[in-house]
Design a binder for these strands. Structure first.
Lengths: 207, 207
DNA sequence: GTCTATAGCAGGATAGAC
DNA sequence: GTCTATCCTGCTATAGAC
């Protein structure tokens, strides 16, 4: 069906080139649809953009959350380390192809930089429930919720950065972003963040 | 002079709306210049964009680096903590107005997401020298350079995130991004990252 | 250096045939 | 649901007067 094809192509192009950088002409050309099909199916370019978030971005975000729960269930005991590892891994590994994953992070980064209507969707349907869940789990180990919130944002910052900024990471580390390096990056984020969380909770007591 | 005014307005608009989202018409209107002035002074919109990086972004980046050195010089003894604090603070405080600072981070985030010719400038004239400098200083305390590189990227990820993603941070932490919160965020990044670096170096020995 | 006028083109959107 | 043709607007860029 051309509607699905349009959403697929549009998502990729919006992620790569942004909203204004992408044209209906380009989307329909790559989707091998007629130029009028966007307006027929979605009414406007703007509504196509929003539909991309509702029908492609959010379902994928739900998959990432499910991956987190699955990874966590596999663990016999839930230590801070296994929780953080599951959180970090969910953003990098799982059933979603790598290309789609990068698309998601690009879209998020774009919306953070220049929020549109879609930003509220991301906030309410992804960040809020997911981050609060993580905080609830981790607050058993780290009681200071305010500091825990900042720590979760620090983890998310890293996940986002290592995903959407691969070019600079590769250049700076002089490494190809292959399977091996990806696993090293995940382990880096896990260890770095685990000690980080312990640190801010420890230091917090002194204040 | 209208050339400077054009650069100033163009930088702000490019940061807010991106390259394709910003029009010459809008730039000249806000700069109170004639619509033909962009092509007179810069030859093309694209060259205006590049000039923004050369004449506004990079000088500010140099100021940030200088701030780092000044902050570091003030310290009696250079511990990992004082180095990391100087590094983090340089991105948030100093002689540059907050609005300009956010503009810089937005431009960087845009170029990371969708690199143009300007990305090489950022890489070669900002990231490479600055990050290598930090690594050289920190490698006296933490000898494992590979892990240190990833740690520096983790710090940069946080600095970028808390700067260009203020909307989500405010929403999630239920705090206004005022002076007080800013200082808490800086201290959070410092402590989180300090323990993080210690952690990955410690764990690295076991492998 | 600044301005007006305009070329030349690409953009989103729509009407109406099939 | 798909297509062509077309409208209208807005874009970058330039020529040429001042």
């Amino acid at each position: 069906m051309s509607r699905e094809k349009l959403l697929e192509v549009a998502e990729r192009l919006f992620a790569e080139k942004g909203y204004t950088g992408t044209t209906i002409r380009e989307i329909t050309r790559e989707a091998k649809c007629n130029i009028a099909s966007v307006n027929y199916h979605f009414g406007s370019k703007k509504n196509l953009y929003l539909t991309v978030f509702k029908e492609r971005f959010l379902p994928r975000a739900r998959l990432i959350r499910e991956t987190f729960y699955k990874l966590l269930k596999k663990e016999k005991e839930k230590t801070p380390e296994t929780v953080i590892r599951a959180f970090a891994k969910a953003f990098f590994l799982g059933p979603i192809p790598r290309e789609e994953r990068i698309i998601s992070h690009r879209l998020v980064a774009r919306e953070m930089n220049q929020p549109s209507e879609a930003f509220n969707l991301i906030l309410k349907e992804l960040f809020e429930p997911f981050f609060h869940e993580i905080i609830n789990i981790l607050s058993k180990f780290f009681p200071e919720k305010e500091k825990l919130r900042l720590a979760v944002l620090s983890i998310h910052a890293q996940v986002l950065y290592f995903n959407f900024n691969r070019l600079a990471v590769e250049h700076f580390c002089k490494r190809k972003f292959d399977e091996k390096f990806l696993n090293e990056v995940i382990e880096h984020i896990v260890k770095f963040s685990l000690e980080g969380i312990k640190g801010i909770q420890k230091n917090g007591m002194e204040n």
